[in-house]
Amino acid sequence: MSGDRQRLLAAEGLTKTFGGLRAVIDVSFTVAEGEILGLVGPNGSGKTTVLNLIAGALRTDAGRVRLAGRDITRLPPSTRTRLGIARTFQLVRPLRNLSAADNVLVARLYGRERADFSAARSDSLRLLDLVGLRGKAQMLATRLTLTERKRLEIARALATQPIVLLLDEPLSGLNPTEVDTALSLLRTIRKVGITLVIVEHNVRAVRALCDRVVVLNSGRRVVEGTPGEALSRPEVIEVYLGTRSARAGFDA
């Protein structure tokens, strides 16, 4: 089982077709324990679909998903969550008519490790504290601002006690200060030993945060490697960026 540390999470030949559109074609990669993996690529390259296939929100047409060697391809999303795969959504989706605290509480009650109510409640408040929402614990989720909802989403995902956390564009819509706060939060999460898979557009953040990136284009895996080497490959710059301004951001 020692080899499993290198293959904590494995995507093996994932394929997904929507109607006639081939969104993901034979995508494979592995994620090592404690790693931060970036999934990058232009819009429509299939990043979010890959995330949904791993989380179980979508069923793969072919291929397998393994968590610590266990085949979880056919399991529903809730079971995957209980096994240790948590996720956030690209467009934040809080449970609108529940308080911020209850949003987190549900995840704590149903996540990987069972907790009784009083433990779950205090854990939820601690998580809200971690993401800076302690003061809004009793507020209905509908009344939170967009950035607050994004932080609530991360608190909810953490409450499931994940082994692997899948984040779908956690930085989109944040201003530079908020991005810095979020980056330090993500580093804190990694420090507690949670493995991260991040779909992100912000190249600077990807360079700063990720140990490794997988570049997707038109549903296929193009390149895999450290951000430094993978993102400076000419084929990546061509498919992913093309334009001068974006290249400037890349070289930074």
Binding site: P77, S78, R93, L95, Y110, R156
Partner: peptide, 8 residues
């Protein structure tokens, strides 16, 4: 979907 993602 969020319920499922929370383990429900």
């Amino acid at each position: 979907a969020v319920a499922e993602a929370s383990g429900v």
